[in-house]
Simulated assay, not measured.
Amino acid sequence: MSDTIRVLLADDEALVRAGVRAILATDPGIEVVAEAGDGGQAVELARAHRPDVALLDIRMPRLDGLAAAAELRRLLPGTATVLLTTFGEDEYVVRALGAGAAGFLLKSGDPRELIAGVRAVAGGGAYLSPRVARRVIELTGERIARVPVARDRTAGLTEREREVLGLVGAGLSNAEIARRLFLTEGTVKGYLTSIFTRLEVRNRVKAAILAYEAGLTG
């Protein structure tokens, strides 16, 4: 990946695209290289431009964001997908979580979350808007009941693995975790492989949710 993060933006509402584009333009390290008005066009443009990150509205014509994300993961595994959502689309959020999307952002959220999310997933991390994270946890079971389960699942990790997992939960990329803990990126990847295996999670988003439930994110 070059120093500039290349982004594909897909939303069927031109006004929303304009707003998201304007927010991303405030970061000189992010460039919107293509825009799409539907999921099918998003896939076509992604194949042509090979962006680092695809920001996809969940509800779009031809292909919705979930189907487009699945197709992009099949065709372009190097492109991280982030789903843009609104409250009231709970079923979609849970389905996207199970499908392995790298991030979830609320259209009505803090603009700083948009830039933070794009940067996190471009660096190999995962990012959930805090409000989305809380809502996902509510949807997948009452947190008060899940906390002891999450703590039991993470209890067998080493102290360093718990530190790494907590930083994954905070949305940090591998490079950021390495800098924070004075490790190499290769060492961080090794820890993550061990963590994912021991916790039986398939992706960073599920690991981030577990870290949040276990109280490891600070």
Rank of each mutant, 00 (worst) to 15 (best):
M60Y: 04
A46T: 01
T158N: 05
L63V: 08
L105M: 06
G37I: 12
V121D: 00
L106H: 08
S2G: 15
T86G: 13
S173E: 02
D64A: 03
A42N: 09
E113Y: 12
T140H: 03
L8H: 08
R95M: 07
A150V: 06
G166R: 04
G125A: 03
R146I: 03
G98D: 15
F87E: 14
V20E: 06
L45H: 05
R134F: 09
K189Q: 15
G117Y: 00
L199M: 13
D11S: 02
A211M: 05
R17D: 09
L72H: 00
D110L: 02
I209W: 01
L8I: 05
E138S: 12
I195C: 10
E138N: 10
V82E: 01
A116E: 14
V82W: 03
A155F: 05
A25W: 02
E13P: 11
G117K: 03
S194Y: 04
V94W: 01
T140A: 01
V132G: 07
L24P: 06
D3P: 06
R119M: 06
A48C: 07
V82S: 03
L83H: 01
E159N: 09
L84T: 08
V136A: 13
A170Y: 04
L76N: 00
D3A: 11
P148D: 07
E159K: 12
T81A: 14
V136K: 08
L114G: 03
S129H: 11
E176K: 15
E138K: 02
R151Q: 15
E13G: 04
A122F: 05
T193S: 13
T158K: 07
